[in-house]
Computed example of a mutant assay.
Amino acid sequence: MATKKTIMTKDKIVSMYMNYVLEHSEKPKSVYHFTKINDFTETEFYAFFGTIESIEKEIFKMFVEKTIDLLNKNKEYEMYDMKSKMLSFYFTFFEILTANRSYVVLVLQEHNNQLKKLMQLSGLRNSFKNFLTEIISDDFRTQQEKLQNFQEKTFQETSWIQLLLTLKFWLDDSSPAFEKTDIYIEKSVKVTFELMNIAPIDSLIDFGKFIFKEKIYNK
Score class of each variant (00 low, 15 high):
D206E: 12
Y80N: 03
K61M: 01
F93A: 05
M8I: 09
I216W: 12
S84F: 12
F48L: 01
T158V: 13
K4N: 04
V64M: 01
P28A: 02
N100G: 08
T51D: 03
K12M: 13
L87I: 13
S175A: 11
V14F: 00
E53G: 02
E44Q: 05
A2D: 06
E214K: 15
K85P: 01
I13F: 01
H24W: 05
T41F: 04
L106I: 10
L115P: 09
S122N: 14
I211E: 04
K5F: 02
F207Q: 09
L165E: 11
K12E: 07
V64A: 00
K168R: 14
E78W: 03
L147W: 07
E194A: 08
F212N: 09
K75I: 13
A47K: 14
L167E: 03
L132P: 00
R125M: 11
I198S: 11
T67Y: 01
D182R: 15
S188D: 08
N19R: 14
W160M: 08
T98D: 05
K83S: 10
D206T: 13
Y77R: 10
F49D: 00
T192G: 07
N113A: 12
E95F: 11
Y80F: 15
E179S: 14
V31Q: 01
F49T: 02
E145S: 14
E134Q: 14
D206H: 12
G123A: 04
A99S: 15
K153P: 01
M86D: 03
F60V: 08
N38S: 02
N74C: 06
F131I: 04
Y184N: 11
I185M: 12
F178Q: 07
V191G: 09
E134H: 13
K116P: 02
K12C: 03
T158F: 02
K57I: 08
E53I: 05
L71G: 01
E145L: 14
Q120G: 06
T6N: 04
S84V: 08
E134A: 11
L204D: 09
D182Q: 14
D182E: 12
M79N: 09
Q151N: 14
E23S: 07
E179A: 10
K146P: 03
E152L: 15
K146A: 07
S88M: 10
R141Q: 12
E76Y: 06
I201K: 13
Y17V: 04
L22A: 02
E42V: 11
E134T: 11
Y184E: 07
K117A: 06
K153Q: 06
V189W: 06
Y217P: 06
E145M: 15
L71N: 00
T9Y: 11
K5M: 03
N38P: 03
K180T: 13
D81I: 12
